[in-house]
Nucleic acid binder design. Structure first.
Lengths: 182, 182
DNA sequence: ACCGAAAAGCTAAGACCATTAGCCAAGCCG
DNA sequence: CGGCTTGGCTAATGGTCTTAGCTTTTCGGT
């Protein structure tokens, strides 16, 4: 029996491919093992079960998401567009970034730290708007909520009308920014 | 063997109780059957499997959610507050309202119709702001996205800082409304 | 009042899912 | 070359949903 030559990072890579194809709920141990050409229990040699795999995958996605945001530059609108593009084009990874409840898990530290970086990126972009100091946290929350809500509603097919969702999004962000700087 | 005296509506009632206690993912046929004092396959006599049960439960929740919004009156801020209060106090039912992908299912009609009523309620509240006719759909989407994003981020523990989330929400809604009517 | 049929429960069984235990062989290192 | 670590495996357990088929209750019609 030749070995498959797996490793933690290789398993995570394969899991990411599965995630992109089958979504967050479809990223099952069976699917990953099949794609790796290996029996399911073999994965436990590299990864701490399904929760551990999800945690590892989420960490990669959070870091990737943050990189995308950073690359969008310091403009709030560009940042929001980039975040939404990521969420729409890679729904599985976006769900991994936002979706987990590992906020309550034991190994939440790494994830929380990585998420904090993302929040800080948004805060940087908002600083250029010249908000009052006390309003910054509120503004970050508002932007995150608007973008996240848009992405998830769209992903769930919540926008029944076929009107241009891109335009709606741009206008919503513009309106919120206008209201924040009012 | 005495009968349990179940019915479709009774099963849905029990499922709602399970939903409130165990959340959307915890609303399993096993949990519902146990609470009903019945074996799992017996539920199939009243409900079309798990997808059918979810569809029925979602329908009830959508109608309830719409009633809550209507009761909040025609003010946008009050409506947003009511929606968020519902989402925070009954996370399971809120997930049922928003969460499904039955938009693509075969029996999406009833659900879609009920959801359309909710959207119309929001549109009514926004009409009092005196928006330009073409901007209405965009405005509804913005409000829905902001509220929905806030609720889901909060439910996922996405707001790390312990700052007052209620105040952040009120300010976010006020900012968006200000931006929309600008 | 009775008989038959529909309805409502049940058990059994099958397909997946995650997880644990324990075995065996591959490969590295002295 | 021998042994130990490591990475694969099979087997088994318990959970999920689902279908098939059986039994018993219950109700309606004559």
């Amino acid at each position: 029996m030749p070995r498959a030559g797996l490793s933690r990072t290789r398993v995570v890579e394969i899991a990411l491919a599965t995630l992109d194809e089958d979504g967050w709920d479809g990223m099952t141990l069976g699917a990953v093992a099949a794609r790796a050409g290996v029996a399911v229990p073999s994965l436990y040699k590299h990864v701490a079960g399904l929760p551990g795999l999800r945690r590892d995958v989420a960490l990669v996605c959070v870091e990737e998401f943050d990189a995308v945001l950073r690359a969008a530059g310091p403009d709030v609108v560009a940042l929001a567009r980039a975040a939404r593009r990521y969420g729409v084009s890679r729904p599985g990874r976006y769900a991994a970034v936002q979706g987990g409840d590992w906020a309550h898990g034991p190994d939440a530290q790494e994830l929380a730290a990585a998420s904090a970086v993302t929040v800080e990126t948004i805060a940087d972009a908002l600083r250029s708007l010249g908000l009052e100091p006390g309003a910054e946290i509120d503004a970050v929350r508002a932007v995150r909520a608007l973008v996240h809500g848009f992405v998830t509603l769209q992903a769930a097919g919540g926008f029944g009308l076929p009107d241009d969702v891109d335009a709606s999004f741009d206008r919503a962000v513009a309106s919120l920014v206008a209201g924040l700087t009012r």
